[in-house]
């Protein structure tokens, strides 16, 4: 499986995720969250920021079901789902992830017919610190 190729701006996201925390970069001056992380706030041009904890709740905005040809680790689980989650605390931010039956489960662990746009989801974390999503009402 591919692991995140982290850049300087994105590193804190992954450090918090490794501790089971979902946090998003937020301007320390104007309070606007932004994603992906970047050095400067596009709203007020401040370079000061903090990493704000989120509730981890969201809704599925869209999803796809990739089929081969894919990299081998992914082809082995295909068709799997990739969902886009609109965060309850920051609706403009939509995180790419996988809907799974429980933390650490395979990418195909939820049947495709259970996935629906608008469904409420909650963030969980793999042992490796990758965020995943489970249905609030499975």
């Amino acid at each position: 499986m591919l692991t995140p190729v982290v850049d300087v701006d994105g590193a804190p996201f992954w450090e918090y995720a490794a501790r089971g925390e979902l946090r998003v970069q937020t301007c320390a001056d104007c309070d606007e969250p932004r994603f992906p992380p970047r050095p400067c706030c596009p709203h007020c041009r401040s370079f000061d920021h903090e990493w704000r904890p989120l509730s981890g709740r969201g809704r599925i905005w869209s999803y796809v079901l990739p089929h081969p040809p894919l990299l081998p680790d992914y082809a082995e689980q295909a068709p799997y789902n990739v969902i886009l989650v609109e965060l309850a605390d920051a609706p403009r931010i939509r995180l790419v992830g996988n809907l799974v039956s429980e933390a650490g489960a395979r990418l195909d662990s939820v049947p495709a017919d259970r996935i629906r746009i608008g469904a409420r989801v909650q963030a969980v974390f793999t042992p490796e610190g990758l965020p995943q999503w489970v249905l609030e009402r499975p």
Partner: peptide, 21 residues
């Protein structure tokens, strides 16, 4: 690293996957 770190690990690998979304 940007933006692939936010998409590739989750299996959003190809342009077709990105546009299908």
């Amino acid at each position: 690293p940007t933006p692939a770190q936010w998409t590739r690990p989750f299996g959003l690998l190809r342009p077709a996957d990105e546009i299908a979304m």
